[in-house]
Design a protein around this nucleic acid. Structure first.
Lengths: 228, 228
DNA sequence: CAGTGGTCTAGACCACCAG
DNA sequence: TGGTGGTCTAGACCACTGA
């Protein structure tokens, strides 16, 4: 068949790009498009659903499909799995744990992980190495109620991240990105200067209604994350 | 119908989360699942396609559907439209153009926009204000071959970004995120200190095979971008 | 090369909501 | 309240690829 949902989607995308349907304007109904392209309505539906998912058009029942006012302000990113990223670059990955301590949760961690005063947490600081060169610095707090087994994990061989994914099974999470000036500690870990601008990723993961871990990753200066 | 593609998708997601199908394991074929849930195979297909799109499972013909080794390392982000973001916070948005000059493209801009030595570009520096407080600093280069009309645009009322979207129609683009220490210029613009860590977004957009604009946004210290 | 996911179709009914 | 997108179905054929 010459007209798949992909070819139709590209064709519509092109008509939008070319300016035939400018931002904010309405485009033909599914049925009309399906007749124009000689295919089933379901095929056009799928093509348009994809374009809506990409943020290129907005769809409403009864009101039809409109070209978005601000197309292309959505993006997908891959949250880096450090080991894979390092290995993809042809280097050898090694996590080096510099702090590994169990303590009663400090106040700010209690807030992050929704814990009580007496709950214990595992605090980990890890330098992620690529060919023994520091690549990223990780500051992690783990809820020991949720993942007691981690105290026996071989964290010099497998990163806490990977251990948690496999042993505590899958979990939901939130992510945010930002920038911060390197403290002395982070600068030492990353072999850079005090105050250097570091790209940071903060993540929290939970399972059911229990928080599992909160982590901040500080990347060496110059690191960039690309979206598609 | 009790079983829509959404309810089925959630059910499968839950079975993965609960550990019934651990990372790397294979899950039943579409046909078996459709019989189990009492629906059409197309419905299961759509549910699984969604889960694959979310990165929770990986699908291959003949090999079946497997739970991903690293679930949830995909995320979607909204590339901020500064005006909308400011207005959503209940503040008044205003772009303040501090540099507006036409010149022959400097070397690094020629590289970014694929221009020749004699091509002219528009260089814009803009401070984005929220309630007259600096919010972000923008350094933009515009290919005047692609968007000659911008020299007459009222850039004090509408940002270059929005003008380009509406007047040069839609375009493709690439995005990357990083961090950098504020130079004196950026520090002045954002009313912060020299060397402060700034979250940055770099974007290039093109249409057909012509580059339109390259822009770097520097956000005030403390800014975070959230993903879902 | 056989079995899996990938896709299309034609028809039907439903949910929503703008006019 | 009627028209639009949202969805499901049953069946069919195709494309890929791993056992």
């Amino acid at each position: 068949m010459a007209h798949t949902h992909e070819t139709i989607g590209q064709a519509i995308r092109k008509r939008i790009t070319r300016g035939e349907w400018p931002p904010g304007s309405i485009i033909p109904r599914e049925q009309d498009l399906s007749e124009e392209y000689g295919c089933a309505r379901a095929t056009v539906n799928r093509a348009l659903r994809k374009l809506a998912d990409d943020g290129l058009v907005e769809r409403k029942r009864r009101a039809g499909t409109r070209v978005a006012e601000f197309p292309a302000h959505h993006a997908r990113i891959k949250i880096p799995i450090l080991r894979l990223e390092v290995e993809a670059a042809g280097a050898v990955y090694r996590p080096q744990v510099t702090v590994n301590e169990i303590l009663k949760a400090p106040l700010f961690v209690r807030g992050l992980l929704h814990l009580n005063k007496l709950d214990k947490v595992l605090h980990l600081e890890t330098i992620h190495l690529a060919n023994d060169k520091p690549f990223a610095f990780e500051d992690r707090w783990v809820n020991l109620n949720a993942a007691p087994g981690i105290v026996d994990a071989p964290l010099d061989r497998i990163s806490a991240n990977e251990w948690l994914i496999h042993e505590v099974a899958f979990s939901d999470g939130s992510v945010s990105f930002g920038a911060s000036n390197a403290t002395k500690r982070e600068a030492d870990a990353l072999y850079t200067e005090d105050g250097a601008a570091l790209f940071t990723i903060k993540r929290r993961t939970w399972k059911a209604d229990q928080y599992i871990t909160a982590v901040t990753l500080y990347f060496r200066p110059g690191y960039e994350m690309h979206a598609t």
